[in-house]
């Protein structure tokens, strides 16, 4: 099953007994057919995933869409990008970027970057969103961005990304959180964070045309 692009801000899902959908709560715009919605708590599979989610704040209120019908999804006029996962490398993105995905895809929480737990906690405390969600499996994911997400292809080179503008990535990529010298002055309109994501390897990084998170 795949999400059908209705326009740059809305996707349509054909939901059936064999193709339920998980979506962000509040993202359902409307539906036809016999469709029900069920709140889903927590995230990921198993205790590990739940603990990680609770600690990181990466848990996002989701809901299952079940039954048979057509459902429109969108969220606050944000742009939607549909990505097809081939079962290889997972999609890494922040939980609140997830508009909807095939229910057979699995999610887990991961800390993005190096520096160990201490930095992870401080990152979470400062709201830098260094905890991310991994989406595994084969299927479709609809991802939210402010102003649309543009892909940057990496073939061994490195790219620096503003954490506020970072949407997600797919591929064999390593991510470092760099506190860049001299960066403090120039980044963060109000955020005051002198961080930059340093991403290198082979894959695709998605970046939005805005430093606004939602």
């Amino acid at each position: 099953m795949s999400f059908e692009t209705v326009n740059s801000k809305v996707v349509r899902a054909h939901v059936s007994a064999s193709t339920p959908v998980l979506a962000r709560r509040g993202a359902m715009l409307g539906y036809s057919g016999q469709v029900t919605f069920r709140p889903v708590h927590g995230q990921g599979r198993g205790i590990g995933g739940m603990v990680g989610a609770a600690m990181s704040g990466e848990s996002n209120a989701m809901m299952a869409t079940e039954g048979t019908g057509q459902v429109l999804y969108g969220y606050k006029g944000l742009h939607v990008t549909v990505l097809e996962l081939d079962g290889g490398a997972p999609l890494v993105c922040e939980a609140d970027r997830l508009l909807a995905h095939d229910a057979n895809l699995q999610t887990s929480v991961q800390f993005l970057g190096s520096g160990g737990m201490k930095q992870a906690i401080s990152g979470a405390m400062t709201g830098q969103g260094l905890f991310t969600t991994n989406v595994h499996g084969r299927g479709s994911v609809a991802v939210l961005s402010h102003g649309g997400a543009f892909p940057l292809q990496l073939n061994g080179q490195q790219v620096g990304v503003d954490p506020q503008a970072y949407v997600g990535h797919v591929g064999q990529l390593s991510v470092d959180l760099a506190a860049k010298v001299g960066f403090r002055d120039v980044v963060g309109r109000g955020s005051g964070e002198a961080f930059q994501l340093r991403i290198s390897g082979h894959g695709t990084v998605y970046v939005q045309a805005s430093e606004q998170k939602f």
Partner: peptide, 16 residues
Amino acid sequence: ASGSMVAVEGNVDFKS
């Protein structure tokens, strides 16, 4: 404009 960089490739320095 300060804070307008969303991504950068290559060797670029930023200075206020």
